[in-house]
Amino acid sequence: MSEHQPENLPATSDAGDAQTPGAEVIDQRQGMFGVRGTGDTSGFGGLRRQVALPGGTPKPYGAWFDGAVDRLVGLVGDDAIEKVVVDRGELTLHVAREQLVAVCQQMRDDDALRFEFCSGVSGVHYPNETDRELHAVYHLFSITHNRRIRLEVSCPDSDPHIPSVVSVYPANDWHERETWDFFGIIFDGHPALTRIQMPDDWPGHPQRKDYPLGGIDVEYKGAVIPPPDTRRSYN
């Protein structure tokens, strides 16, 4: 929590505050409680909030982070790493998607890095981050050095292709299928990129933000409870 924080504002952190230099604004939210239009007499409808994620961290990163990043840059070149984020004691490398397989190969094989264990990939959808709407997030674990690292790769919604790392980490086979299934990210080079959780003929990718949750009104003792996605929400 910030030191000089006005009492009447929601909690912020140094890392994720829109006012913090370096933080990246990825979205704008408007309104509160879901009230919109002329029906809003509370004034809350005019509330605006910027959504900002921790931005790039300048050197030095601290701990073993510097050594690992320098080593990786030395092996794969400067242009493979777009951004380095150190937040909450975790190191995140934003990797250019063309370079992902080369980066993973070095991450696994280089003695000084040796991230031999891949905990899989998960997707995150940021619909308002233009040309970087879809993110694939990889968590690697080095058992040798007892370290964890996160690789983040983004691709535009209009060209949802990311190279598959199954050739380096066979463990990612099902995880990439799951991310394709839920987010529609096409992992080029995957041996059999088919749906895994949803039925084969399912339309759409359910965990994208533009895919509705669905649900129906439930009546309980005379009161009608709306489905969760239409309930009051606090932006």
Partner: peptide, 20 residues
Amino acid sequence: FRVPAGQAYVAIESPRGEMG
């Protein structure tokens, strides 16, 4: 409550292995 923006990964040892 509000949770400051960002991401975190935590893994623990479940009876079946790494629960992340």
